[in-house]
């Protein structure tokens, strides 16, 4: 009985840290289905994850860990250190801000607000990389990335909600 309780408790612990775990796996793995060879196809899963869980003020979603995840992402992708961290933290700030000003949450409003935020952050990213680090980047890739991230947001949100429900139960 004691063993069973302990197992249940450790499973619950792991379950509650799942979003952070998913964030780390996604930045290290760069999971974006690119091997399907679809022209320009990509989406930014960390953006969706960070925005949603910051919006929900999820207690295990530590900003410091998000910052570290950003550094990992920069290393894997080959971007200058700190660029992704800045992007992730800006998403956190934007999500925290909308959480503070919202009295009655509306998923559709959040969705479009998310579109606005990721467009802004990707523009900032593009500008910094092009102007300060002399990177040659394809604008179309960024636009397609924003579009698919925005589209997939609603799908992932429903999965995350399901997860949250499981945690509350």
């Amino acid at each position: 009985m004691m063993v069973s309780l302990r197992t249940k408790s450790s499973f619950l612990k792991l379950y509650s840290w799942l979003p952070i775990l998913a964030l780390y796996i996604s930045v290290l793995n760069e999971f974006d289905l690119n091997y399907l060879n679809l022209e320009y196809f990509s989406f930014n899963f960390p953006f969706i994850l960070i925005f949603f869980f910051t919006l929900k003020d999820f207690k295990h979603f530590d900003y410091f860990l998000v910052f570290i995840a950003g550094l990992f992402n920069d290393t894997v992708v080959g971007l200058p250190l700190g660029i992704s961290s800045l992007s992730y933290l800006l998403i956190c700030i934007a999500a925290a801000y909308i959480r503070n000003i919202t009295i009655r949450p509306n998923p559709v409003k959040d969705w479009f607000y998310f579109l606005f935020i990721i467009s802004l952050i990707n523009s900032l990213n593009y500008t910094v990389l092009t102007l300060f680090f002399s990177f040659d980047l394809i604008l179309m890739s960024y636009l397609v990335n924003v579009f698919f991230t925005f589209t997939f947001y609603i799908i992932f949100v429903s999965i995350f909600k399901y997860y949250m429900r499981g945690l509350n139960d």
């Binding site: 530590d62 900003y63 998000v66 200058p80 961290s85 933290l89 700030i93 910094v128």
Partner: peptide, 17 residues
């Protein structure tokens, strides 16, 4: 649960860049 405020982390990330 947060160890650092977002402003601190934002400053650090700009510093790192």
């Amino acid at each position: 649960k947060q160890k650092f405020s977002l402003l601190t982390l934002l400053s650090i990330s700009i510093f790192v860049i």
